[in-house]
């Protein structure tokens, strides 16, 4: 068993786990943050995407021990001061989700994408979120949401 110390959404956590434990399992089972979902466990579907030290990463192909000392952000950390993040608002406004299972990964991916490309074209948005598979929406609502959120975020919110 190994000790893992990390910060998630600004809160410090310490846990003990086997070296083989996946980061996503550690987040869900040991920290009780079930907003991050497991869709494929082989790094393709993107549902488990979180931010690790400010960059998006797939928590199903990282070990918990690899995140020792890291700062993580999960979907639970997106809302600030009781207010939805502009991305969350835009997903609701533009029907960017149906079943909601890929949504946490989609949000974290879009967050990272807009950080690096604040004024994307639709084609760039599509490429940016192509790292996450969604089977409900046909993606159009998500593209519309990310475009709208980009405008809001550029507006200085």
């Amino acid at each position: 068993m190994m000790t893992v110390r990390l910060k998630v959404n600004g809160v410090a956590h310490e846990g003990r786990c086997e070296p083989r434990k996946l980061l996503v399992d550690f987040i869900r089972e040991d920290l009780g943050l079930t907003g991050t979902h497991v869709g494929c466990e082989h790094g393709i579907c993107g549902a488990c995407t979180i931010m690790v030290n400010g960059e998006s990463a797939r928590s199903c192909i990282m070990l918990a021990v690899q995140a020792d000392g890291a700062e993580l952000m999960t979907v639970e950390g997106l809302m600030q001061d009781g207010k939805l993040h502009p991305l969350q608002e835009a997903f609701r406004e533009h029907h960017g989700l149906q079943c909601g299972f890929c949504t946490p990964g989609m949000l974290m991916t879009a967050l990272d994408f807009l950080r690096t490309n604040p004024s994307p074209s639709d084609g760039e948005i599509r490429e940016g979120i192509s790292a996450v598979l969604c089977r409900c929406t046909g993606y159009q609502g998500i593209v519309n949401a990310v475009r709208a959120a980009a405008a809001t975020l550029r507006g200085g919110r």
Binding site: R28, T36, V38, E76, Q88, R92, G100, F101, P104
Partner: peptide, 18 residues
């Protein structure tokens, strides 16, 4: 706008594994 979205957008959904 959907009632379901607030919980699903904030990681507070309850799926079978949760």
């Amino acid at each position: 706008k959907r009632v379901e979205d607030a919980r699903l957008l904030t990681g507070r959904g309850t799926y079978i594994d949760d």
